[in-house]
């Protein structure tokens, strides 16, 4: 069982539902997001188009972040997910400098969602799940996976551009979609062997 994801960039409409669903599901503090969507443009007028690249953590099989972590807080699980144990993290941030996909974020401080006002009830509750001074990253929504669901970003996408599943199973929807659409990881030349594949774009 090796979790992986396919994102079809031809279908992605750049709405950021995934980014907000990630915040919603994971309850990350203000300014911290486990998911990002790159929006940029390609071409020259009149042949110019908006381009989108949603990026969860790539969950590299040869993860640079796991290599540099001095306390072993960042581990590569057998199911392919790269996870951070917040109780072991010392907050040295070398994983952030090591990650070429900018997938990790350090919790400098707990800011408030609503600036210039108080922290909301929601924040107060969900902050208990985080520790200031540690690094966080996308974990493919481990809690949801344990409940048999797919990741929040996959579930919410209005254009259904994501497929999530078992890369080790050649008949799974994601494995077949990767083959059918000729999907490749982003910046493959870095040779970190990501588990997230992109088609089209």
């Amino acid at each position: 069982m090796r979790y992986g994801m396919l994102i079809d960039l031809n279908k992605c409409v750049g709405c950021n539902a995934c980014t907000v669903a990630c915040r919603n599901n994971n309850g990350t503090p203000a300014g911290v997001s486990l998911h990002k969507l790159l929006k940029y443009e390609a071409g020259v007028y009149p042949n110019a188009k908006m381009k989108f690249r949603p990026m969860p953590c790539m969950h590299c099989q040869d993860a640079p972040c796991a290599k540099v972590c001095p306390t072993g807080a960042t581990v590569q699980r057998p199911d392919g997910i790269v996870d951070v144990d917040a109780n072991k993290c010392i907050g040295c941030r070398s994983c952030i400098t090591a990650c070429p996909y900018d997938s990790r974020q350090f919790i400098w401080d707990f800011g408030d969602y609503y600036e210039q006002a108080q922290p909301t009830r929601l924040e107060q509750k969900r902050r208990l799940e985080f520790q200031k001074g540690t690094v966080v990253k996308c974990t493919f929504c481990l809690t949801r996976l344990q409940q048999g669901k797919v990741t929040a970003c996959t579930a919410t996408c209005p254009s259904q551009c994501r497929v999530f599943g078992d890369l080790d199973d050649p008949n799974s929807e994601v494995s077949r979609a990767i083959v059918d659409k000729g999907a490749r990881p982003f910046r493959e030349e870095l040779e970190t062997h990501p588990s997230v594949y992109y088609a089209g774009g």
């Binding site: 539902a17 907000v20 919603n24 929601l122 919410t156 209005p158």
Partner: peptide, 25 residues
């Protein structure tokens, strides 16, 4: 405390389980 707002079942119209960024917020 409301901790999650997400699309309802994937068989329920009209959004079939999906939700836009505003709905998620």
């Amino acid at each position: 405390i409301v901790t999650r707002v997400e699309g309802a079942g994937t068989d329920i119209p009209p959004n079939y389980g999906n939700l836009c960024p505003r709905g998620n917020s």
